[in-house]
Design a protein around this nucleic acid. Structure first.
Lengths: 339, 339
DNA sequence: CAAATTACCGAAAGCGCTTTCGGGAAGAGG
DNA sequence: CCTCTTCCCGAAAGCGCTTTCGGTAATTTG
């Protein structure tokens, strides 16, 4: 490969001139630039990124902190989609993503420390746990940052419109004739979980429906298993709901499983509507009606907000709320009027 | 944060000594080491990774090339799991993962070039397309590398035992009484696809079953849609199979959908067995019987092989074949003897 | 007590690149 | 023909760290 020195020697110019030629400085003649570029191609020279970063103070790297909760990591189907679209968007601008370990050669360090060590230009955090100390630390640092799926006044954030999503879901069920509408909620310490509960309550109130005791059940961390357990509680109620709005597709899948195990049918006996529209949603039986969060748009918005800050080299704080959509499939039906 | 110079000034020692203290050289007294460490903590000093890499020629970074085929990227549920476990394993050793764009500030470059530019210590490629020029280039380079889900004599590889997996599937169906066993294959240009076909053929032959014409149908890139189309072809046959071994869970999901749309039942009318055991497999209806590939073990093995090479600073070529398991669920049943 | 180790520490070179600043050559202007 | 620009180019410093190599002071050894 060779260094810039080799290139200089080969072409007979100084490393200064070589560097300038490579970086399109205007004070180098076309002729010599051509020669240098040619020589560079011949010895397929590539600049060393570390040396560049060291001298320019720009690393063209973005640190990503990913959800560690629930041991899912990169396997999480929703965060996954976001990261993928974020990656595409940042890649176009020439940035690389770096997934940092918290372990610097067997010396434990925080994510922030690690990112400083790596001298990343910016950070994206995709991890909904606002209680996480590491996340707090990141949000309070002075590195450009964007956090996804969580609100904050101190840094740029992007999340989708959970209140509206909940409203869509509730109204949809109501339009189908349902009045006994329950909600299986995600953990309240997570913004998305809390917002959907709030949206549920608001929407119910707006259409004049009351929430019966026991109709709001917490299912923790959005897993299939917890969704199933929550649904079982609902099924044990004396007056069962006829429809349930579930704060996540995975939980909805668990809920449906619970319903089936009781010998009941979806949607004939109970309608269920999910949230997220993960890929799997369209393949389960019945196909899941759900509120789609646009992971592509979320990822792109996050990229945009972060790139802005990185090029300006200053922290900004902008909030971007992404709209959601109702995806009508087969897990909800009009209320059966028993006669 | 400060540099090593600041630390030197603050403590009154030379940067040499400071560096040594930080790196546990033995020719610095305990007393001065303590002082330096203390001062470092006070000003929360962190070494600059770029400077370190520049001078040590070790970046503690692993470049990952991920499947780009099919536009799935990080969303692929199988590769996903591998990367996650790979990440855990390498993280423990202090390595960071970097997902490189092929776009260095608007100058297109290959992955190999980019990885050289970033001076990664090693590369992992998780992308089954052996025809990909980029992959070829990586495999022929002299950087430590491990490739997953693909065979090669030129570099370390890890993949699971596809021949055996196919045999398990076929024998299982045969044990259930099936003889008319079809195979929906993945693309043959992909190692895994080809190997499963071969395993299918071998297993059929071993138990003395012949493959009827039309029973081997190619479904391309393992997608749900293609699996569905392939199954439709099978259903159009005059003599339908009673069981089908599908080379991927996603395709199996499509296949089941096709069967259902014809008004047939799984497994009563047709048994289907998948491959991979993606998370979704246990949640669809019926729960999918499948061959599990152990993504955790694959990821760990890959990490191991790569770390070996990176610490030895030389390329090695070792092959690791990971065993597979049959996961019995509800999509296969004994052959119904029509009377 | 002299000689030989051993224990600590620092000067300096080097890793590969960028960028400021100054200087020579060539062209423009009078 | 002389001065003033403009155009090109390179010396040198700097980015933050590691590591070799020597040198002094403190300890052992006989």
């Amino acid at each position: 490969m060779g260094t810039i020195y080799d290139l200089a020697k080969k072409t007979g110019f100084s490393i200064t001139t070589v560097s300038k030629a490579l970086n399109n400085y205007k004070d180098v003649s076309e002729k010599t630039r051509a020669k240098i570029l040619q020589a560079a191609a011949e010895m397929d020279y590539l600049p060393n990124a570390h040396a560049q970063s060291l001298s320019t103070k720009k690393s063209w790297a973005i640190g990503v902190m990913f959800s560690e909760a629930n041991e899912v990591g990169m396997k999480h189907p929703f965060f996954n989609g976001i990261i993928e679209s974020f990656r595409h968007a940042t890649e176009e601008q020439g940035y690389d993503l770096i997934f940092a370990s918290r372990n610097l050669r067997n010396r434990d360090m925080s994510y922030l420390e690690h990112f400083k060590h790596r001298a990343v230009d910016g950070i994206v955090v995709i991890c909904s746990d606002r209680m996480d100390e590491q996340v707090q630390e990141l949000m309070q640092s002075d590195i450009p940052i964007v956090v996804v799926d969580m609100d904050s006044a101190n840094c740029s954030v992007v999340y989708s419109d959970n209140i509206e999503g909940a409203r869509l879901a509730v109204n949809y069920l109501h339009d189908l004739g349902h009045a006994r509408i329950a909600h299986i909620a995600g953990d309240q310490t997570i913004d998305a979980g809390a917002a959907r509960v709030k949206g549920y309550e608001l929407a119910m109130e707006a259409i004049g429906l009351s929430i019966e005791p026991g109709y709001l059940v917490n299912a923790g961390f959005f897993s299939v298993r917890e969704g199933k357990q929550a649904m079982e509680k609902l099924l044990d109620l004396e007056s069962r709901p006829t429809a349930v709005f579930v704060a996540g597709d995975q939980m909805a899948i668990g809920a449906i499983e619970a319903i089936h195990e009781r010998g009941l049918r979806v949607p004939e006996d109970i309608s269920v509507i999910g949230y997220d529209d993960i890929e799997m949603a369209q393949y389960i039986t019945p196909k899941l009606t759900t509120i789609r969060q646009d992971t592509d748009e979320i990822g792109e918005a996050a990229a945009e907000l972060l790139i802005e800050q990185m090029t300006a080299k200053e922290r900004r704080t902008e909030r971007r709320v992404i709209p959601v959509h109702l995806i009508e499939r087969a897990s909800c039906a009009p209320l059966q009027t028993k006669n």
